[in-house]
Nucleic acid binder design. Sequence first.
DNA 1: GAAATCGTCAACCGATTGGTTGAATGACGC
DNA 2: GCGTCATTCAACCAATCGGTTGACGATTTC
Lengths: 107, 107
Amino acid sequence: MSTRLDLTFAALGDPTRRTILTMLLEDDMAVTDVAEPFEMSLAAISKHLTILTRAGLISQEKRGRVKWCKLEPDALREASVWMQGFGQFEPVNLDDFERFLARELSD
Amino acid sequence: MSTRLDLTFAALGDPTRRTILTMLLEDDMAVTDVAEPFEMSLAAISKHLTILTRAGLISQEKRGRVKWCKLEPDALREASVWMQGFGQFEPVNLDDFERFLARELSD
DNA sequence: GAAATCGTCAACCGATTGGTTGAATGACGC
DNA sequence: GCGTCATTCAACCAATCGGTTGACGATTTC
């Protein structure tokens, strides 16, 4: 049996999925639009979205024939709480975050 | 190619490895002592420790015939910084952390 | 030096992962 | 109703994962 924390961290372990999450930070997106920038089949992206959904990191709602993907920060918050017990990390440094984000997106 | 962030999150996706990290919060430990509470072979634990090492989450130093494992919070800090960009999480709540830790350890 | 201890290596196993392709389902637009 | 668009399903593939067992190389102890 996998706990939600297992699924959350495992889901974050793939760069494609992390990039999807950063895209969803901007706004909710349809599956086809999520897939557009990737050099990979729509079916592959659909699988990634299923994994993110099972991990609780996003939710998907079907309206008409398009399925909208929405970031769900709760699972991330759980994981973040778990992590912060190690080492009493200083409060969020937004500059650090933007550096990491930039490095991620440039890959 | 896998980035360190990939390796870090993937490493955290396994409950055995997260438990090992919580054990190492207390103190540095020898491989055999890390393995003792688990119902699994020493070789399996050795593999988990290799994964944690490659992810940068721990370091291993051999002194004599004993190999000591030490928590390395830097990789966790990187991952934490990445995560905290999502949702501007409130400052660490230690009570939350202890609840999660208790739930984890009771599995 | 022989025996025990610490840890890894190598080979194997079944299950899962991350991807592909092609067919199938469902909803729209005309 | 027919074609098209949005998405998933099903089958397949190679690679990786998480575990096992048994042999092995160091190191310590007697």
